[in-house]
Simulated scan of single mutants.
Amino acid sequence: MAGQVTAVSRNEGYSFSKPNRDSIRLLTGLGVEGDVHAGETIRHQFRMTYEPNLPNLRQVHLMQEELFDELAFKGFQVSAGQLGENITTRGVELLGLPTGALLRLGEHAVLEVTGLRNPCSKINDFRKGLLSEVFAMDPSSGEFTFKSGVMAVVRCGGIVRPDDPIRVESPPPPHRPLERV
């Protein structure tokens, strides 16, 4: 599976959306340089209050641009960075990757996928009704569907820019499906 980076974003402070940038620098074991969520331990604002020493499995947030196409069809205008992602992609089925898949971005950067982003209620503050479009329960199976991207850790740092290629490497079997992190 091959794809492309369509946008990169970071924000120094806590806010729902992240401004797009010309490039971002990924730092091994930390995340996006200058981003509020970078660090060895958890940086998620809510979870830091009760689990401050957990390893940061949410260093980099990736989201598939195809979701924006789906949302536009349903009347929601959303663009890169607005849902808080660091890297927006096209042509990679992020939600179908197994835990531990490696994403090679550009010349040097390597991310390891750790799990699904758990959408929060702030999505409805951004666009009323949007949460139900990115988080839903399948009535037939009772399983939840999470569409708001995946989380990853930086295994090899480097500069990432829009239009960089993305190459996917699956871990050895047996593959574990993604779970919320």
Score class of each variant (00 low, 15 high):
S140H: 12
F144S: 06
R47E: 15
F146S: 04
F68R: 05
L178W: 12
F68D: 04
Q4C: 06
F73H: 14
E107G: 02
N124M: 02
N86L: 05
A38T: 13
P55F: 15
E107D: 11
S121D: 14
P55M: 15
S140D: 15
L57K: 15
E179T: 07
F68P: 02
E112Y: 02
S140C: 04
E85W: 11
S132I: 01
D22F: 01
A7I: 01
T145P: 00
V5P: 07
P165G: 12
L105Q: 11
V32Q: 07
N20P: 02
P98Q: 11
V168D: 13
A72M: 01
L71F: 00
P98L: 10
T88V: 07
V60Q: 03
E33G: 04
L95R: 15
E107A: 11
I42N: 09
S15K: 09
M151C: 04
P171K: 04
R167C: 05
V160L: 04
R58Q: 13
P19M: 08
F126I: 02
G149I: 10
N11Q: 05
E51F: 15
G100R: 03
S148Q: 13
G13I: 12
I24R: 03
I24C: 04
L71T: 00
R21I: 05
K128M: 13
G81R: 03
N118K: 10
L103M: 11
A152P: 02
D163L: 13
R43M: 09
E33D: 14
V181G: 04
F135A: 03
S140V: 09
P174L: 02
V113L: 06
P162Q: 14
V160C: 06
E33K: 10
G115N: 13
L30G: 01
P177E: 14
D69K: 14
R25A: 07
L83K: 06
C156Q: 09
R10V: 00
Q45G: 07
F144D: 08
L178I: 08
L71M: 00
V113G: 03
I123C: 05
G81C: 08
S170T: 02
H61I: 04
I159P: 00
F16S: 04
R176I: 04
G100Y: 02
I24Y: 00
N118M: 08
F46P: 04
F135N: 08
P119T: 00
A72N: 03
F16V: 06
L62R: 10
D22G: 08
G91F: 07
V110P: 01
A80N: 09
Q77M: 01
L131E: 08
P174D: 03
E112T: 09
R25E: 14
L116F: 10
V150Q: 12
P162T: 15
I42Q: 08
L67C: 04
E70V: 09
D69W: 13
T99W: 13
E70H: 11
R43K: 13
L111F: 06
Q4S: 08
R47T: 15
P19Y: 06
Q4R: 14
